[in-house]
Amino acid sequence: MLIDIVDLSNTLTEAFTAVFQRAQRSLVVVHNGRDGAGAGVIWQPGGIVVTNHHVVARGKPRISLVGDREYPTRLIAKDPQIDLAILQADTAGEYDSDLPAAPIADSRDLRVGQVALAIGHPWGQIGAVAARIISSLGEVAVRGRRSSVSVIRTDVGLAPGNSGGPLMNVSGGVIGINTMIIGGDLGVAIPSHVVNAFVAETLGQEVPQVAM
């Protein structure tokens, strides 16, 4: 019985490690040439990166892969109301395979209590991971054309540098983009279905959504 428990916790540990290792590959560091760095997720092949608007609101953004080369980027869309921005990395076509898109999960059927994983660069610690659960699902009032926006709250402790990074389910599917602007000081993420709608609106195409 004791052996089983040790096996179980080893298996859990290895499974968590595997998910985080895979997630690192689609995680970027967003530099804005000014103070600090934010995080971003490679959302689609071809160098489409989603991050928080406030991370790139000023300055000239560049992205780099964790521990890897930098790419100049263009800001192609922003929505300050939901604190999202879309960047196009200038890969010149040849680095597409170096920028693998993250698997995006459907955030419309989440349940409170499910494990939520965050990855980002809190206080400049590149690629730091955290795991807790989904604390609540709800709407917050925002100003502008939307009267409210869906949010995922988690008890993952987020810090500056987590902004723009992914919130993931246990399969590594991205369920949201972490932000620290909306909804107070607790961990809040904009659900991936809201991000998908924004990306589709910007790029003028439907984004395939895989259930994970």
């Binding site: 179980l8 298996t11 859990l12 499974a15 595997a18 998910v19 349940r111 494990v115 659960i133």
Partner: peptide, 17 residues
């Protein structure tokens, strides 16, 4: 490994429910 993570996640959601 991922089955175990999914089981863990689902069982906590069930506990919350």
């Amino acid at each position: 490994g991922n089955n175990i993570l999914t089981a863990l996640s689902d069982s906590m959601a069930a506990a919350v429910e």
